[in-house]
Design a binder for these strands. Structure first.
Length: 421
DNA sequence: GCAATCGACTCAGAAAGATCTGT
DNA sequence: AACAGATCTTTCTGAGTCGATTG
């Protein structure tokens, strides 16, 4: 199977760039009737118009269902949602027909099917640049802006709640503090056939360590089984409240045993219309970026501005615990970079030595030694594999010594070039 | 009345693919 | 000019959130 896939890959790679582009354009033309939808008289791009093909389910982290077969979806499994007078899209597989055609104006999906692994709903939606998506995206940020007007009151309220006699109020107030301060997700309960991950409301005693007087260490698997590891100095009241909630409980017990995500959200809605736990993430991420960008120095050029922006944006990613695993070849690439760096430094030393020597002797040229990588010897009649092998040989071959005489100007030019890098 | 389940939506990381850049 | 490697963009689909429905 692997061999087959490898050879398919090689076949694809062998197609010249121009032809590949042509193939791509033709394919785009062919699928156009599936990728564009008319919504309220306007053409909109469709997001995922291809049905997920059969595969072995993998899942993220330690998923109980990993390895199960995700079965093929047939037209009969699919419900189409279109306007009542619109023509039904032609079924692309001869001899088959759509399972159901309906006209539901209250939802935004175009097609629906059931996932054979989880029995969950899967949809075809419009793309992110569609009216439906952009309007709801804008509404999300407006809601976060609205929270800005309520936040002081809400914070005052939960600080008071830490000391409440009512355990439910205490749980809710401490949980809300964590959601606000650490941008934790709300953390719905999860089932037996899902990976064991948690959010705020599902935190267990085993996920926390208390370091008096006021530091809490968090260590748990969050969404996508991404580890959240953070040692935080928290407000004293929250510390005491949280510690009290963890006391007399087993390590596998829920900290917020009486709190549910829906009761928390219900409470939030009583404080501000439309407020839910996830709004705090949007709010705090946006506010953090805004604050960091404002305290920016005077970046001179676009390049510096970009570096600055990316740096601040990374801070927000840290707040939200967004992280990507390193690419497979990362170590190798870093290794190559450091070798290159060393070589460049050595070359710089040699150039500087030559410059000094010329200055001392008042000559206008000097002998320099450069260590260079041999060039691959590529012949026109070589096959792709032979070329690759030759390139590999050249890149792994020892450095060659090249001695040459350089004029003073070219030495200075070379030094400047190294500094540019 | 309430816990469990469902439906519809956003969020998110991996991998594939396209494009850019330096040699 | 060609090519390889780096980087940026897109695709894919699994993993959440949250309100509604159901038993």
């Amino acid at each position: 199977m692997q061999e087959h896939l490898e050879s398919k890959k090689a076949e694809k790679k062998a197609i010249p760039a121009a032809e590949r582009k042509k193939i791509r354009e033709e394919e785009a033309e062919r699928v156009k009737k599936y990728t564009v939808a008319t919504v309220d008289g306007k053409e909109e791009r469709v997001g995922n118009f291809r049905i997920e093909p059969p595969a072995l389910f993998l899942g993220r982290g330690e998923h109980p269902l990993m390895g199960k077969v995700k079965k093929r979806i047939w037209p009969e499994d699919i419900t189409i949602n279109i306007g009542p007078k619109d023509p039904v899209p032609e079924c692309p597989i001869p001899g088959h027909k759509w399972g159901k055609v309906m006209h539901n104006k209250a939802v935004t999906w175009l097609a629906f099917w059931r996932d054979t692994i989880t029995n969950g709903s899967k949809y075809v939606w419009l793309a992110a640049d569609s009216k439906f998506k952009t309007v709801s995206d804008a509404a999300k940020f407006e809601k976060a802006r609205k929270l800005h007007k309520y936040i002081e009151k809400i914070r005052k309220d939960y600080r008071r709640g830490w000391k409440s006699e009512d355990e439910l109020v205490r749980q809710r107030s401490v949980a809300l503090y964590l959601i606000d301060r650490l941008a934790l997700r709300v953390g719905n309960e999860k089932g037996e056939d899902e990976a064991d991950t948690v959010g705020c409301c599902s935190l267990r005693v085993e996920h926390l360590t208390f370091n008096d007087p006021d530091v809490v260490e968090f260590n748990f698997l969050g969404k996508d089984s991404i580890r959240y590891e953070n040692s935080v100095k928290v407000e004293r009241g929250a510390y005491l409240g949280l510690k009290k909630l963890a006391q007399k409980k087993k390590s596998s017990d829920d900290i917020f045993s009486r709190l549910t995500t829906s009761s928390l959200n219900e409470y939030l809605r009583s404080l501000m219309e439309g407020l839910t736990a996830k709004v705090f993430r949007t709010y705090n991420a946006s506010l953090t970026l805004d604050r960091l960008l404002r305290q920016g120095g005077q970046q001179q050029n676009v390049n510096e501005q970009l570096v600055f922006y990316n740096k601040q944006n990374k801070e927000v990613a840290i707040l939200c615990n967004h992280q990507r695993s390193l690419p497979k070849k990362h170590d190798e690439q870093m290794g190559k970079l450091s070798v290159k760096y060393e070589e460049t430094i050595e070359w710089l030393r040699e150039l500087e030595r030559a410059a000094k020597e010329m200055k001392a002797s008042r000559k206008d040229s000097a002998d320099v030694t450069q260590w260079v990588r041999p060039k691959p010897d590529l012949k026109p009649n070589m096959t792709e594999e032979q070329r690759a092998a030759e390139r590999r040989r050249a890149s792994e071959a020892p450095l060659e010594k090249v001695a040459k005489r350089m004029k003073v100007d070219s030495v200075h030019l070379a030094i400047a070039r190294v500094h540019d890098r």
